[in-house]
Design a protein around this nucleic acid. Structure first.
Length: 473
RNA sequence: GCGCCCUUCGUCUAUCGGUUAGGACGACAGCCUUUCACGUUGUAAAGACGGGUUCGACUCCCGUAGGGCGCGCCA
């Protein structure tokens, strides 16, 4: 048996878990699960200025909500700085790194000059072969990696194919700052190696880093892990994902009323495919997921398709499970906490009973919440514009006509109410719609709702009759 | 500026040299119907462009155009 698969998700805690990161995590997770391997979680918090505990919490919360579990404790990259420093010094010892005494100001000037002269922006190698004894006094040096200048670095990428980058285009990157702290590319290599990561799956924005990291692996005589660089997710206009589009944290998707399984399904289909399969369970995703199924071009985020999928999942979720999802969602939406607090057992029962009719019509939990309003509204109900229009003289007359029919119903059961109302409509020479719509308005305060006889039954006799009387009077 | 990558219906994608270029979302139309949905039937809709290679290219190669990513003592 070959060595077990170990993947990792390595976000930097400078903000929430955005949608691209969520998909990267999903791919790492699905691949690891499908290979009976592990997915590790590493927090890349070496930037002490920008990393926050709140961001770490938001990322863990987002992953958890999405159902993406990681194996073992999350690793703090910053906590491993000493080991990174050791490796930097080992590189120094091997002649694969050197001290550089250029100041940040000099480097900035160098960059600006190159830009102005339209030359490639790269470190010029001032200290690469210079005698350290000529170092200026008082300047704390950084350690730079001595990158090969000839030849090329090859990345055998599972999504991108064989990517070849000329070494002359890669400069000597800083691996240890003047304050002694390691930088990203060094830390990543050391951590991935030490953590036993066998497969790196991340965004293509790391492709150039992959080349530099490959050089570091080689310099340390370490095995280079399998690499897969996943194309980016763009906004609907093809440009970079902005906040206005979908570059929101996953918690924003939760607040918009999307189900985790729907988002998982949608995200999986963005940049990855398994033939023509569109709707599949997470179990199937795990079973089917392969690196070969990942595409090469960027995908645009499409809310319409996400909504469609979400509607499908809402419809196909068992009522009791959906109720749990709904209640878990409430704390994250406006006026949700209040509703949650008011949802005692009786009201939960009522909601549960109404759910079959409601979930058929909701694409998001936000819509579900809105459509459930009538259940808990207090008499007399507020009427929206369309409901008011339905309750014109004709509508009210129709209501007055059915009222005694309904009041005479011994068993308040949907099917029986339907039979009685239909008989009444026929006797009165009215089309059912002429009765049903005013009833809907009176009972829900709106012009759209689940089937009217379901509404009657769920509301119960007293409440239904009361609401109708409110409008007839 | 330099390097790398990408390009099939509006969108997500299938196709791994030979298909009437398929599916899904969305759109439009019909059916169903007490509303809205759901469901269902159907329609429109694509290989960026130009050269090669080949008996045969969406598929392979080159170029052009457009787009993306990277080029920090950020990650």
């Amino acid at each position: 048996m070959s060595s077990p698969v170990i993947t990792r998700f390595a976000p930097s805690p400078t903000g929430y878990l955005h949608i691209g990161g969520a998909r990267t995590a999903l791919f790492n997770w699905a691949f690891a699960k499908g290979q009976s391997g592990k997915m590790l979680l590493r927090i890349e918090d070496t930037d002490r200025e920008r990393s926050t505990d709140a961001a770490v919490a938001a990322i863990l919360d987002g992953l958890t909500w999405l159902g993406l579990t990681w194996d073992g404790e999350a690793v703090s990259q910053h906590a491993r700085a000493a080991r990174h420093q050791d490796v930097a010094h080992e590189l120094l010892k091997r002649g694969k790194a050197y001290y550089c005494y250029c100041t940040p100001e000099e480097l900035t000037a160098m960059r600006e000059r190159a830009e102005a002269e339209k030359r490639p922006i790269r470190y010029d190698g001032t200290w690469r072969d210079r005698d350290p004894s000529t170092a200026p006094a008082g300047v704390k040096p950084v350690i730079r990696f001595r990158a090969p200048q000839e030849g090329e670095t090859v990345i055998n990428d599972h999504a991108q194919g064989r990517v070849v980058i000329p070494n002359k285009d890669l400069d000597d990157l800083i691996i240890l700052r003047s304050d002694g702290n390691p930088t990203y590319n060094l830390s990543v290599v050391v951590d991935d190696h030490d953590m036993g990561v066998t497969h790196i799956i991340r965004g293509v924005d790391h492709l150039t880093n992959a080349a530099r990291q490959t050089q570091i692996y080689l310099a340390m005589d370490w095995a280079v892990p399998s690499m897969t660089h996943v194309p980016l997710i763009h906004g609907p206009d093809g440009a970079k994902l902005s906040k206005r589009h979908g570059a929101l944290g996953v918690e924003a998707y939760r607040a918009m009323g999307y189900l985790p399984e729907a988002l998982r399904n949608y995200l999986a289909r963005l940049g990855w495919s398994h033939g023509d399969d569109e709707i599949f369970s997470t179990e199937q995703l795990v079973e089917w997921f392969s690196l070969e199924g990942i595409g090469k071009s960027a995908a645009r985020f499409d809310f319409a398709k996400l909504e469609n999928l979400n509607g499908h999942y809402i419809r196909h979720t068992a009522d009791d499970v959906l109720l749990k999802h709904f209640m878990a969602f409430l704390p994250h939406v406006e006026a949700g906490p209040e509703l949650l607090a008011a949802l005692d057992e009786g009201k939960q029962g009522k909601l549960l009973k109404a759910l079959p009719g409601l979930k058929e019509r909701a694409k998001t939990l936000v819509e579900l919440k809105a459509s459930a309003n009538y259940l808990f509204a207090k008499r007399p109900l507020p009427m929206d514009e369309r409901a008011k229009a339905l309750l014109n003289d004709e509508g009210k007359a129709a209501l007055a006509g059915v009222l005694p029919v309904l009041a005479a119903e011994p068993n308040w059961i949907g099917a029986e109410l339907e039979a009685a109302v239909k008989a009444h409509a026929e006797a009165a020479g009215l089309k059912l719609g002429k009765l049903a719509q005013p009833l809907r308005a009176a009972l829900t305060g709106t012009s759209t709702s689940p089937g009217i006889f379901d509404v009657l039954e769920v509301l119960g006799r007293d409440e239904s009759l009361g609401r109708i009387k409110d409008q007839v009077a």
